[in-house]
């Protein structure tokens, strides 16, 4: 497989190469993630987008080894995380944290907020006694809550506040990389905007690097520097997000961007409405995984998995017809 281009240029914090994850189920093996390679530049926010079954969540968890990968490597600051024994991994776990989608099920309902945040501090032996209390208070303030909230239980908070607690817990160990798995998807629009602002402020202040997993193309366009488009476990397109949104080259990316609802009734777009359903990951199509729904599929698409071809700096596409299909970007014409 061709090497994916490095979107960040020189300073790469995380380099994922040929990551695959197969789950063995009663109905046979499921290729949840297959041969995925991408780089995450230090201080950048990389969006991983995809629909159900695209493998975006599994990919994120494999990188943190919350799920054991089947193949590949994830080089974090020069060290392949996949080769580390459990004991050595622990030191790296402190440098990488995760934020979950559901702020209702990811916080222990029987623990006080102060203890939820304190647990992470204790696990890594970062502070004790008064210093620990001060750190909890500081974290709560940083995410827009108040130090008094440490004594309360998760059920006393709204969804947006719980997500803030989840973020405070992730920040407690001063990580360098945060994997955020649909962190704003369960929140109302007005609360979502508050949390997106918080994520940006923290990212700037603390110089965080982020992997932002989402199905919301509007949020990814706004927040992410780079984007990786997954479909049935494989990367179909990746590159700097402004470039990919302005000039999508894969038929799937084009369809996805053309059908994402835009809150403006005067925008008239040429919608590419894909036929049929996403195939089962138990029985993915041969060759290009997208070919069964692709309006441009030809016989050759079934024969081999298309290689990633570079179309502009940092921008690559896995489609054998990308060159002949390269037409001017789908224009947003105001009626």
């Amino acid at each position: 497989m061709s090497q994916s281009p490095s979107p960040a240029g020189g300073d790469v914090l995380l380099s994922v190469r040929n990551l695959s994850k197969r789950f063995h189920t009663a109905s046979g093996p499921v290729k949840a993630v297959e041969d995925v390679s991408f780089d995450v530049g230090r201080g950048r926010i990389v969006g991983i987008v995809g629909e159900s079954g695209s493998g975006k969540t599994t990919a994120g968890r494999c990188i943190l080894r919350l799920v054991e990968p089947s193949e590949g490597e994830a080089v974090f600051d020069g060290v392949d995380l996949f080769k580390l024994p459990e004991r050595a991994l622990r030191a790296y776990r402190r440098r990488m944290q995760i934020i979950f989608q559901d702020p209702y099920s990811s916080l222990n309902p029987r623990m006080r907020v102060g203890d939820i945040i304190g647990e992470a501090i204790d696990t890594h032996g970062l502070a004790k006694g008064a210093a620990r209390q001060a750190r909890i208070a500081d974290l709560l303030t940083r995410v827009g809550l108040s130090p008094e909230h440490a004594r309360r239980y998760p059920h006393e908070f709204s969804g947006g506040q719980r997500q803030r607690i989840g973020i405070a817990r992730a920040l407690a160990v001063e990580p360098e990389l945060i994997v955020a798995d649909e962190p704003v998807s369960a929140l109302d629009v007005s609360v979502q905007a508050q949390v997106l602002n918080l994520i940006q402020e923290l990212q700037k202040e603390l110089g965080l690097t982020m992997l932002f997993i989402s199905h919301d193309l509007t949020v990814v366009e706004y927040l992410c520097d780079d984007i990786v488009v997954l479909y049935l476990g494989r990367i179909l397109e990746q590159g700097p997000s402004r470039e990919v949104y302005a000039n999508p080259r894969h038929p799937y990316t084009k369809a996805l961007l053309s059908t994402a609802p835009i809150p403006d009734p005067t925008v008239r777009r040429e919608r590419v409405i894909l036929q049929g359903d996403i195939p089962s990951p138990l029985d993915p199509p041969s060759g290009c995984v997208f070919r069964t729904r692709c309006p441009f599929a030809i016989e050759a698409c079934a024969r081999a998995v298309p290689p990633h071809e570079s179309v502009s700096p940092g921008h690559s596409v896995a489609c054998i017809r990308q060159a002949e299909l390269a037409t001017p970007a789908t224009q947003k014409v105001t009626a």
């Binding site: 629009v189 905007a193 940006q200 509007t218 706004y222 402004r242």
Partner: peptide
């Protein structure tokens, strides 16, 4: 509150904060 690529970018491409 909804991100809008035209409104929420400065001339140099830098992200602007949303208005929750």
């Amino acid at each position: 509150c909804i991100p809008n690529p035209e409104r929420d970018r400065a001339a140099d491409g830098a992200r602007l904060m949303l208005n929750p």
